[in-house]
């Protein structure tokens, strides 16, 4: 068939193996079939939930109130609070993305071109988080615009929404919502990698984020102090906190959970055989 043979020596292997995971995933997420529904859903969600939160806001009290909305930074209060309702959706999306890569074999196929497992996992995850950041930014823009349109008719004073303190508050709100999203993303990725099955992963995730977190967790002080989903909810909706918990305790606990999840993911990525 042929007489020529190639030398077995390697040349530039490391160079070839470097990087690319972020770009590949970012480009995949950039397909119109992916971003168009994601943007449409975000716009709809941000508008509807912001409208609902403002329309049902009380004059005073905890959470989204007319009084709080009328203060500096009030423009991003409603969209920030709106994020709390997206926890199960976020978890499901990240479970689906990570478990789907195993069950469809695309993780295996990717490893054949990018054998650095950690680099592939980190690049892919960061691209998804970058996509999440875009979605969160859009949530805030649409939520703020909706609030600005709806607020005055509900008695909200929007005159302080564009001062410097408001923009700083908006940046903080953005980071808190992004942190909330990253937390759920880590949980979803860990569950997806552990189960390697979209239906099983979703079942586990929905069971945990639904009845266990919200029924069991909310009913017991232990759950309110330690359940990761509830702790994440406090980040974007501090008014939902039913127990005494300092910021240091809240963020310290979440950071510890983050380290544990990263360890679990690293173990699953690095040690488990890729057999599907």
């Amino acid at each position: 068939m042929t007489t020529a043979t190639r030398p077995a020596e390697t040349t530039g292997t490391d160079r070839r193996l470097r990087g690319g995971a972020f770009l590949a995933e970012w480009t995949r997420l950039g397909q119109r079939r992916v971003w168009l529904p994601a943007i449409a859903t975000t716009v709809l969600y941000a508008a509807v939930v912001t409208f609902a939160l403002i329309a049902t806001a009380q004059d005073r009290g905890p959470g989204v109130t007319i009084s709080a909305l009328s203060q500096s930074g009030g423009g991003t209060l409603a969209p920030s609070s709106a994020a709390r309702f997206a926890s199960v959706l976020l978890l499901a999306v990240f479970v689906g993305l990570s478990a789907g890569a195993f069950s469809k074999g695309t993780w295996r196929a990717a490893l054949l071109h990018h054998p650095g497992r950690f680099g592939l996992a980190v690049g892919t995850f960061l691209a998804r988080i970058a996509g999440l950041a875009v979605i969160v930014a859009l949530l805030f823009v649409v939520g703020w615009a909706t609030a600005a349109v709806v607020g005055p008719s509900q008695g909200v004073d929007t005159s302080a929404w564009t001062d410097a303190a408001s923009w700083q508050s908006a940046a903080e709100d953005f980071l808190r919502v992004l942190g909330f999203g990253v937390g759920w993303a880590l949980l979803g990725t860990a569950v997806g990698m552990a189960t390697r099955s979209v239906p099983v992963g979703l079942a586990v995730a929905v069971l945990w984020a639904g009845p266990i977190e919200n029924v069991l967790g909310d009913s017991f002080a232990f759950g309110q102090r330690w359940f990761p989903g509830l702790l994440l909810r406090y980040v974007v909706a501090p008014d939902s906190l039913g127990i005494s918990l300092s910021n240091a305790e809240l963020y310290g606990t979440l950071a510890a959970y983050g380290v544990v999840l990263l360890g679990v993911i690293a173990f699953l990525v690095g040690r488990r055989d890729v057999t599907s």
Binding site: R16, G20, T275
Partner: peptide, 26 residues
């Protein structure tokens, strides 16, 4: 090619290859 081909069904064949090119710096 092991355990069957595995690509993203919502992308074209060419786009799938392009994605692998980015991944492997080909």
């Amino acid at each position: 090619l092991i355990e069957g081909p595995a690509f993203h069904p919502s992308m074209s064949g060419r786009a799938n290859l392009r994605n692998l090119v980015r991944l492997g710096r080909h």
